[in-house]
């Protein structure tokens, strides 16, 4: 408990310092990293802890991004850009916080609907079905011109996302996932990962315990989508596609099968791509980032399949204790 408060304060302090000292560009990078952490930790719910290999995270993100963007958009501009919106949406403008939560809830709802049939599939069949789902969502967004402006995407979204919103949602995501893992739910999920058949014979309801991490993960993906939309201010259907799903998977594989691992992976990949992007621009070597990421992934898969952190977690309490000993 005390360790948790310490962490909150320290992270808050870091955020405050960064807000005061960093320039806009670097602050944006930090906010991106935070969003990556939310995405990776929430994807770990299914992919790392329950052994369900999903590639559908960008679809949930897209849903959250589009819903929240439409909800925070000023009605006057909606009338011009999205003439076919139903009446109640056209005249509605919600506060950012509420819009993001609604985006997350609707993403979770869609996970619930798609999860029921799809979660019966095994292993990489599930992976392919989730890619299928991602493409379906993408096609729908692209073709519903009057709601989403189709391939043009929505631009001019107000940049509500700041470091404090990112801070709050990172904390909420990590805390929630940590609580889930250390509950009855979490143990059931791990049991499913280790041995589905045995878990079922112990009376663990597979559908329920598989659906739960997918839906919860989708909620946070939706939230992350909302934050992302209000950070980059312009979204198109192609922003949420396989390369992004791949990047998230790479984070989890490189980091390892734990919350700590997911965070490490997200930060590492995030930082590497932010460092390489300017280089890519300067040298006109587009694709370099992805090449480096893919090679890194292959190296980890062959040399250290468990990832950097393995399945270990940092224990905050003993971390602080050891720091006090040092003092």
């Amino acid at each position: 408990m005390i360790a948790g408060i310490y962490t909150l304060v320290i992270l808050g302090g870091i955020s405050y310092t960064m807000e005061r000292t960093l320039n806009d560009y670097h602050l944006t990078v930090v906010e991106f990293l935070g969003i990556y952490v939310i995405l990776a930790v929430s994807l770990a719910l299914t992919n790392s802890f329950t052994g369900l290999f999903s590639l559908g995270h960008p679809a949930f993100m897209a849903i959250g991004a589009y819903i929240s963007a439409i909800l925070t958009f000023p009605p006057i501009r909606k009338a011009i850009m999205m003439p076919a919106l139903p009446h109640f949406l056209a005249n509605m403008q919600l506060p950012f916080c509420l819009a993001v939560i609604i985006g997350g809830v609707i993403a979770a709802l869609s996970a619930f609907i798609i999860g029921f049939p799809v979660l019966r599939l095994r292993g990489h069949y599930l992976a392919v079905a989730t890619i299928g789902f991602m493409i379906i969502v993408q096609v729908l967004i692209t073709n519903m011109n009057s709601l989403t402006r189709g391939p043009l995407g929505i631009n001019g979204i107000y940049p509500y996302t700041d470091i404090w919103w990112v801070y709050i949602w990172v904390v909420v995501t990590v805390y929630t996932v940590w609580r889930v893992l250390n509950s009855r739910f979490g143990r059931a999920m791990l049991a499913i990962r280790e041995d589905e058949i045995a878990a079922e014979s112990l009376g663990i309801s597979l559908t329920y315990f598989k659906l739960f991490p997918l839906v919860l993960g989708a909620f946070f993906a939706g939230v992350a989508g909302g934050l992302w939309a209000h950070l980059v201010t312009a979204i198109t259907p192609s922003s949420f596609s396989l390369p992004l799903a791949f990047l998230l998977v790479v984070m989890l594989v490189i980091g390892g099968k734990s919350i700590t691992g997911a965070i490490i992976g997200a930060l590492l990949i995030g930082i590497v791509s932010e460092l390489l992007r300017p280089l890519e621009m300067a040298t006109q070597m587009y694709g370099l980032t992805q090449i480096v990421t893919a090679i890194g992934l292959l190296a980890i898969l062959i040399k250290k399949p468990g990832g950097i952190a393995g399945s270990k977690e940092i224990n905050l309490v003993s971390l602080y204790k050891s720091l006090k000993v040092l003092r």
């Binding site: 292993g123 390369p243 992805q290 090679i295």
Partner: peptide, 24 residues
């Protein structure tokens, strides 16, 4: 000899490699 999903992830990596070398 690794689990099936590892093979699948590997193929994703190869795919990304080929596509981005192509773009490059």
């Amino acid at each position: 000899s690794a689990p099936q999903v590892t093979g699948f992830i590997t193929s994703l990596a190869i795919s990304s490699l080929i596509e981005n070398f192509g773009i490059l």
